[in-house]
Amino acid sequence: MTSSTATDAEKSNEHPVKKIVIRRLPPTLTREQFLDIVSPLPDYDYFYFCNADPTLGQNAFSRAYFCFKNNQDVLNFRDRFDNYVFLDSKSNEYPALVEYAPYQRRFKLDPKNPPKKDSK
């Protein structure tokens, strides 16, 4: 029974869930500020925010990765934030890019098989 509902859920979501990345965010942006700006967010099961790499100087950007549970949300998110202009504290403009992430693997905690605990 459970297996059949799982396949139904998969069918309604024809393509497997994709990891997307929003790039070229202001380097001074923090995770909390970013979440403030983009909320309300649709349901997601994966998110992480990367601070900019300061060694790139003026070419440093922050970025964030998402997996939305519903594929339609990906399109809506892209329509909202692709080319959306983020501002940093000095009001410099940073048009963001929304793309599918080239590397699709994502980390998911599996409650049945927790990852090996590091004994160190």
Partner: peptide, 17 residues
């Protein structure tokens, strides 16, 4: 092997770079 998410984040960062 111990921290899967770290490996993923590093690969993401390398591709981004």
């Amino acid at each position: 092997l111990y921290y899967e998410d770290i490996g993923i984040q590093i690969v993401d960062a390398v591709i981004e770079d």
